[in-house]
Design a protein around this nucleic acid. Structure first.
Lengths: 127, 127
DNA sequence: TATAAATCTGCATATCTTTGCAGGTGTGGG
DNA sequence: CCCACACCTGCAAAGATATGCAGATTTATA
């Protein structure tokens, strides 16, 4: 029985789950701790419905967990280390075809690696 | 300008590229060094056309490079370290929902981590 | 209880991917 | 030159995703 095929499918599913800009940014946002849907929607500048759907997907795969307090739902990362792992991928993205950004790669990596303690304290300053 | 959005898109593209069982297995196969299309097709047990298309995609994103010798085309990983990075992701796949495989997770990880010197020397033995 | 707030769910549409198949290209042999 | 081999490319059908919108839930509040 090709167990390697099974693992490949598992991995592919995980990667597919992560392979969306919004979801990656959600994970980046949640590094600093749990946040509610509205805050996340504001932070990403996307409609709350979309955020909700992405979170539902992430939750279905147990990448995030939900906590309800009153009418707001807070989400948090189940595996905070996953953010650091994602950052490592930057070394594999082809920067040769986009040299204009290559100079900023370290800045960008730093931002993803940073704790980002308060989301409003990292207001996407234009590098 | 939301540089974080740009990076998210870059990362998402990379992850999307990796998020396919066949392509993950191709990368796993190529850990041991360059191989031609037919060998890869046999190893993965998928039609050569499909392998070729996946390789074209990986090549377009510069994850693999091609070398032609006569009528056979050899492919190799541009970033061999990417395989190790992929293996790290195993710790994030939800094993709680598939406890039957949980026991094999270490075996599986070992196989992905292993050099796999000769593909025929790792004939997918049933664990 | 009626309202509003904060989310979620279901659905239809638009897009993107995957895949096999037919046909094309380039190389080596006879 | 002609044929077989090893691949690649284009294309159409099938399948999977993404997204906005409308409507349903759940929880405070007046």
């Amino acid at each position: 029985m090709p167990s390697q095929s099974i693992v490949s499918r598992e991995l592919a599913d995980l990667l597919k789950l992560l392979a969306h800009p919004d979801r990656l940014r959600l994970i980046a946002e949640l590094r600093s701790g749990e946040q509610d849907v509205t805050s996340l929607a504001v932070a990403l500048a996307v409609p709350a419905t979309r955020v909700s759907q992405h979170l539902a997907l992430l939750r279905a795969h147990r990448l995030v967990e939900e906590r309800r307090a009153g009418r707001t739902h807070f989400y948090r990362l189940v595996h905070p280390a996953i953010a650091a792992w994602i950052v490592e991928a930057l070394q594999f993205v082809d920067i040769r075809n986009r040299l204009d950004e290559a100079g900023h790669i370290d800045t960008v990596r730093a931002r993803w690696s940073a704790p980002a303690l308060v989301s409003s304290a990292t207001p996407e300053r234009s590098t």
